[in-house]
Design a protein around this nucleic acid. Structure first.
Length: 840
RNA sequence: GCGGGAGUGGCGGAACGGCAGACGCACGGGACUUAAAAUCCUGCGCCGCAAGGCAUGAGGGUUCGAAUCCCUCCUCCCGCACCA
């Protein structure tokens, strides 16, 4: 019988579906396992083998966990609302709704052919009213908590996507989706106050079984930094100027101040003589994009004409404005210490401002006091400070390292770390400062000026103001429109629909206008994993007992591109819902796995991430037709370590296809003995590979799992050929179980051919366990080395003593001739592995 | 600039203090075939007829023993990038 995958694969998938084999069920006594893929957006271009990689990985893992006896929830759904889906539709000039429906159907067919054990009864679709009703509900919950607010501010604007963007969606000044240069635009927008969760989002990273890289990317993005706020009074002006610094120990070295050009005090402070220059600079800054700012890193700025008073020694220092100080961070103002900050140094150099050293680095201290111990160094530094030797040593760059405070009044002589605390203490006592922690994270901009999304459930009423749509009036349906292209004016396409916009105020019944923006797709995907627990719930977003049953997600598989977008937002949402008492856990994803990309040389001639637009995509449909799904699955595992990128090789799949066919022929052509395996050699072989495969599975080293399956088959084939006695059926069945997660269709078929009545996946706890007793050998081979180089090998009895073995080694012909009568300097004996004879 | 990851045959990779190159791809030789495909057997890091020597980006170090640990450097990839 020939191996013809097309004849068995569809049949088994139909059988699995009929039996409801992949339905996740509640069943007391068996532990649950939630294995989740990041849900895709329906693209119309379908899936390429790069997409398959992650899905195959999670499916192999789900099937393995099933065989280990877990009740596995492995669902799939569609991130169907939002920019990616809408842009895909616009590109094809098809209405997003029509396009999305067709794309989902095609992708669902492809996912079906993959043979993944998805529980399709739980499919979710974020663009369906019964889903986005609850997306809107989450918005209302955040609104009630005061976490959703509207503010007018210059926002990130993508002129190509014609919508506002969150900071996380801007990469190096370019739009994350379309690479256009992001500009600034003044638009009132909805924000989520994610910054209130900054510290918790950092703290809870610790317990997560995630790649360290992703945890670090999140921690860096949130960007905690400890320092102090310091109050400067202003000369001839009643207001105070608050600044944030991480280096209060350098306060004596502040030689000028800088305000962000947007700082509220700029106008009031600027003197008449400087007014024109300052206004010109402010206007210029406002029109520059992030990219322009990044390209031109030379420091620019203008003097305001005003001066501030240093709170520690009363010195007058000039106040400048410059765009290297950002309004969005800290207080939007800094004290500049050019001697100890590289940016301030550059600015001072550019504008000829004074540089005063107030920290003596350990190297300089040594130079001033050669050969001295640390006390002498400190004393010498003190001496230098008291004598007001200024600067202590000529600086040729900013010294940012900690050291000893000098030129700092009675703080001189303190190590800078201690000085930080002392300076803050004194400022606090005088009411002129306080310790303070700042975060780099900004609040999350969630409104989009686009059509294809969940409408924001808010009504504006002239008498009641901003009124949330009551829960029982949800969903606010997205109207079907003919013209859905973004306007680009900042108004969403929905603003052109009077029948949508004009409504009644839910509070007073008077005339009201609906909010016409839609919610970012990142909101739809910030809670979808909860919906899988109760996809059919109508009256609630999810049933508490079902969420408690299945969540949190035990294993989450997806690309690293979501390291700070989706994963940060989902963690925030989970914490908010926890605070609301809606769920009982604080982190959504216990374990995270980022699969590597599949790359291939594209039209550009370079090795790039696979995608249709780069002309390097490989369609799985054709490969499935030619080699079958099982071969493609196995090849995507075999291609390399799953966490690393891998280059697609067109002929690489041949190897795994041949392996599967050899398994087929091995089983189909064989006559096997009934009952258990008795020969220790075959048992040893079986358990050796079982051990290797189980251990590699646990570590997710799926490439070596496939390699071990190949080796195991090669060994069994060789054994079958050379021995007259047939191999036991049990041995073959064990092999099929071990290969089942990788190649489920062929394993299932051969299992049935060997008389299996139920599905190979139905056993529960069917994963074969390796047993140490079968691995024991009576003889072991040891390597014999001279000076660490392999020169010979010997077989010794497994229980042989050290003396026996070394005696045997010393008697070896090669050893005798190498020694030439001398005594070895040393003999290293690693039991079970080697004997290393160290010659003189 | 700062931070992280990676450099092993013609190629993908394995080993992660103890036999470097498992398992495959490609390629060479052979069997079967009228022939081809498929399949099977066999060879395959480099130098050398061989014995042997040399080999894990480069150089140093630790160790009886280093692809693996440490230091310096080079190259590539990724993240962040005026966040005070």
């Amino acid at each position: 019988m020939l191996y013809e995958p097309e004849k068995i694969e569809a049949r088994w998938r139909a059988t699995w579906e009929e039996k409801g084999l992949h339905r996740a069920t509640r069943e007391p006594g068996r532990p649950k396992y939630f294995c989740l893929d990041m849900f895709p957006y329906p693209s119309g271009e379908g899936l390429h083998v790069g997409h398959w990689r992650g899905y195959v990985l999670s499916d192999v893992w789900s099937r393995y966990m099933t065989l280990k006896g877990y009740r596995v929830l492995h669902p799939m759904g569609w991130d169907a609302f939002g920019l990616p889906a809408e842009n895909a539709a616009i590109k094809k000039k098809i209405h997003p709704e029509t396009h999305t429906r067709a794309a989902m159907a095609n992708m669902k067919r492809q996912l079906g052919e993959m043979g993944a054990m998805y529980d399709w009864s739980r499919e979710v679709n974020s663009s369906a009213p019964d889903y986005y009703k609850w997306t809107q509900w989450t918005f209302l919950k955040l609104f009630e908590m005061g976490l959703a607010y509207k503010k007018g501010a210059p926002i990130n604007w993508c002129p190509s996507c014609r919508t506002g963007l969150a900071d996380e969606e801007v990469k190096e000044g370019l739009c994350e989706r379309c690479d256009s240069v992001v500009t600034k635009k003044d638009l009132p927008q909805w924000f989520y106050a994610i910054t209130r969760y900054s510290q918790r989002l950092i703290d809870d990273l610790e317990g997560l079984d995630w790649p360290e890289k992703v945890k670090k990317m999140q921690a860096d993005w949130i960007g905690r930094s400890e320092g102090a706020e310091v109050c400067f009074s202003l000369e001839g002006h009643p207001d105070k100027l608050w600044i944030f610094t991480t280096r209060p120990d350098t306060l004596f070295g502040a030689t000028y101040m800088v305000l962000a050009p947007e700082h509220p005090l700029v106008e009031a402070l600027t003197t008449p003589e400087q007014k024109a220059a300052v206004e010109e600079y402010v206007t210029r800054t406002r029109t520059r994009s992030e990219v322009e700012r990044q390209e031109q890193k030379d420091k620019t700025g203008v003097f305001t004409g005003a001066c501030a008073i240093n709170p520690v020694q009363g010195e007058r220092i000039p106040i400048w404005i410059a765009d290297y100080v950002l309004m969005g961070y800290g207080t939007g103002a800094i004290m500049a210490v050019p001697a100890h900050d590289v940016r301030d140094w550059e600015f001072a150099q550019a504008f000829g401002l004074p540089i005063r050293q107030v920290i003596l680095s350990p190297e300089m201290a040594r130079e001033l006091c050669p050969g001295g111990d640390s006390e002498q160094i400190a004393a010498r530094a003190l001496d230098a400070a008291y004598q007001e030797r200024f600067p202590v040593l000529p600086l040729d760059e900013a010294g940012t390292e900690p050291g000893i405070m000098v030129n700092s009044g009675d703080f001189s002589g303190l190590p800078s770390l201690e000085g930080k605390k002392k300076v803050v203490e004194r400022l606090e006592a005088q009411g002129l400062g306080r310790a303070r922690v700042n975060y780099r994270l900004r609040d999350w901009l969630v409104s989009r000026q686009r059509y294809w999304g969940a409408p924001i459930p808010i009504v504006y009423c002239e008498t009641c103001g901003t009124v949330p749509v009551p829960e029982d009036q949800l969903p606010v349906l997205l109207p079907h429109v003919e013209s859905y292209e973004p306007s680009g004016t900042g108004a969403s396409p929905l603003a052109n629909l009077p029948e949508f916009v004009q409504t009644k105020c839910p509070r007073c019944g008077g005339p009201g206008r609906r909010d016409t923006d839609t919610l970012s797709q990142w909101i739809c995907s910030s809670w979808y994993f909860l919906r899988y627990a109760s996809p059919d719930a109508n009256e609630v977003p999810w049933r508490r007992e079902e969420v408690d049953e299945w969540l949190p997600v035990d294993m989450y598989v997806g690309g690293i591109e979501h390291a700070v977008l989706h994963l940060l937002y989902s963690r925030f949402y989970t914490k908010v819902l926890y605070d609301l008492g809606q769920i009982g856990f604080k982190e959504p994803f216990k374990r995270l796995f980022n699969q590597g990309m599949i790359t291939r040389v594209g039209t550009s001639g370079r090795l790039e991430k696979m995608s249709k637009s780069k002309g390097n995509s490989v369609n799985p449909d054709e490969l499935v037709e030619r080699y079958g799904t099982d071969a493609l699955r196995a090849y995507l595992l075999f291609i390399g370590p799953p966490e690393l990128d891998a280059e697609w090789n067109d002929s690489g799949i041949e190897g795994v296809y041949r392996w599967i066919r050899r398994v087929w022929n091995f089983v189909a052509s064989g006559s096997f003995a009934e009952g258990a395996e008795t020969r220790p050699e075959v048992l040893r072989l079986t358990h050796r590979y079982l051990k290797k495969i189980t251990e590699d599975m646990e570590r997710l080293h799926l490439n070596t799992v496939v390699a071990a399956l190949m080796e195991w088959l090669n060994a069994l084939s060789a054994w079958k050929q050379q021995e007259s006695a047939p191999i036991a059926l049990e041995t073959v069945r064990t092999y099929l179980l071990a290969m089942a997660p990788v190649a489920p269709h062929v394993a299932e078929e051969l299992w049935a051919q060997l008389g299996g009545e139920a599905s190979i996946f139905e056993g529960g706890l069917a994963w074969p366990i390796w047993e140490p007793k079968h691995l024991v050998e009576d003889q072991v081979e040891l390597i014999v080395q001279f000076n660490g180089k392999v020169r010979d090998r010997i077989r010794v009895a497994a229980g042989a003593s050290r003396e026996e073995i070394e005696g045997q080694v010393m008697a070896l012909e090669k050893v005798v001739s190498a020694l030439e009568g001398r005594t070895p300097r040393r003999v290293i004996h690693v039991p079970g592995k080697l004997v290393n004879v160290v010659l003189g």
